[in-house]
């Protein structure tokens, strides 16, 4: 491997009641690359994303980020890690409805202890970058779906994370808006050098990745990207 592996999942197992969500899943993510996680619904791709991001803990197996074992960390340590190193974009309903778009984008910075003024300045520049500066002072409910999703992308990137986890980021959008979001998202991620783990069932969204991994029955079939 020429590039350094940043995030690794090794042989993860996790069951919810009767169903095996993860059944020996493994995955490697290199710094700066975009990996699409594809597979039928219920295959465990979202669960894998949650485990990779340290939101959930697998029952067995290891998740290693930058040499650190996430599965051995406490909840607090993982929260701290997520605040500093990770960003998230979800399908919908992820922006805090009471806060303005600017405040939503500034939120991760403020959670990391950045001052209000500073956080807002950075948030504004990110909103401009994603071409949604005009909704900065509106609430998410007053922005369109596509704008809201771009605000969410801005929020995911505002801390300059090393990995952004995106779970069906365009799932609630039409193709044109979805495309716009993806174009800006991936471009911005590449610029900042963030790796992206992208869960999607849409091939055209997956086409923004460097390579894809297919999740089926809780296992991953990883396809190496051959350029």
């Amino acid at each position: 491997m020429t590039e350094q592996t940043l995030l690794t999942a090794e042989n993860l197992h996790l069951t919810f009641g009767e169903t095996k969500a993860l059944d020996g899943a493994s995955l490697h993510v290199r710094a700066g690359e975009v990996v699409a996680l594809m597979g039928p619904s219920g295959s465990g791709k979202s669960t894998l994303l949650h485990c990779l991001a340290g939101i959930m803990a697998p029952e067995s197996g290891r998740v290693v980020y930058d040499g650190r074992d996430l599965t051995a960390m406490s909840d607090t340590e993982r929260s701290t890690l997520r605040r500093g190193e990770f960003g998230f974009v979800f399908q919908f309903g992820q922006l805090v409805p009471e806060l303005t778009c600017r405040e939503n984008v500034a939120l991760p910075l403020r959670l990391s202890g950045v001052g209000r003024r500073e956080a807002h300045r950075t948030a504004t520049s990110w909103l401009e970058r994603l071409d949604v500066a005009d909704v900065a002072d509106k609430r998410p409910g007053q922005a369109s779906g596509g704008q809201g999703q771009r605000v969410a992308v801005a929020r995911a990137l505002v801390t300059q994370p090393r990995v952004v986890f995106a779970d069906e980021p365009t799932g609630a959008l039409d193709s044109l808006n979805g495309e716009l979001v993806m174009k800006m998202f991936i471009a911005a991620a590449r610029e900042t050098g963030a790796a992206v783990v992208l869960v999607t069932h849409e091939p055209r969204v997956a086409a923004y990745s460097n390579r894809e991994a297919v999740v089926r029955d809780g296992r991953v079939r990883e396809q190496e990207f051959a350029r």
Partner: peptide, 13 residues
């Protein structure tokens, strides 16, 4: 609950 879960993902205390 959804917004809360997302905030938790972002590492809110």
């Amino acid at each position: 609950r959804k917004v809360l879960a997302v905030l938790v993902a972002f590492g809110i205390r």
